[in-house]
């Protein structure tokens, strides 16, 4: 019978031995060497029966199909826009996948200009890491006004909470409009600057304390105090 060397939800560092024995299986962020399972990056250990997985604490966004992301237009070509989504590679939004009807030989800056922020969905990720985006779909659009903050992509699930409980809480308490991209970009737009700042402070607090427990209550207290 194998043995788990590290406790659940503990911080592990790259190269740390996590488990002994062949009856444990290496999941995401781990690999097997001889009969040991070893962490591949800095993160929190999570086990699911025999599966061992490391949830990253830091790192760049790794694009996945169907993720909602917030990107910035960095280049415009003949066939579409090149968009920075905070991953190692720029994503492409082709004319075909844009929500607007675009006439032939039209000036593309009319639709999305340099520096514009776009909420988009990832359509396709190829093995050679070219990423295709689309803005067709509900809620996908060009962003107007508001403010953007960057957080670590691995902490996005915590920001959304179970069935969106955390984000719902912030939205209710501050009355702000918030969109969280899976790539760790958060867009906030509220009635007043104070409310926007309150919402962004809450988001920053979640990022800093994402690995602690009882966070929803803490945020609730923080938002009610003001």
């Amino acid at each position: 019978m194998g043995k788990l060397l590290v406790k659940e939800r503990e911080i592990v560092i790259p190269g740390q031995e996590l488990a002994e024995g062949l009856d444990y299986l290496p999941g995401q962020g781990t690999f097997r060497e001889d009969n040991k399972i070893i962490a591949n990056y800095l993160g929190l250990l999570s086990t699911n029966e025999r599966f061992i997985k490391v949830i990253p604490l830091t790192g760049r966004y790794i694009p996945k199909v169907n993720d909602l992301v917030i990107g910035k237009v960095v280049e415009i070509g003949f066939y579409g826009w090149s968009i920075d989504i905070g991953s190692a590679y720029n994503a492409m939004l082709s004319i075909r996948d844009a929500a607007e009807f675009i006439e032939r030989d039209d000036d593309l800056t009319k639709y999305y200009d340099y520096g514009d922020l776009v909420v988009a969905k990832i359509n396709k990720v190829t093995r050679s890491k070219s990423i295709d985006l689309t803005t067709k779909g509900p809620g996908l659009k060009k962003l107007d006004g508001g403010k953007i903050i960057d957080v670590t992509p691995s902490k996005v699930p915590r920001m959304i909470g179970k069935q969106g409980s955390m984000i719902q809480l912030i939205k209710e308490k501050t009355g702000c409009n918030i969109i969280i991209g899976q790539n760790g970009r958060v867009w906030i737009k509220g009635e007043s600057t104070e409310k926007e700042i309150l919402a962004s402070n809450a988001i920053i607090k979640i990022e800093q304390e994402s690995h602690t427990e009882g966070l929803t209550d803490k945020i609730k207290k923080m938002l009610e105090k003001k």
């Binding site: 790259p14 190269g15 990056y41 800095l42 830091t58």
Partner: peptide, 11 residues
């Protein structure tokens, strides 16, 4: 490198 979340086999 570890702090940047780069996959590493060891330190």
């Amino acid at each position: 490198l570890a702090h940047a979340g780069i996959p590493m086999r060891d330190m």
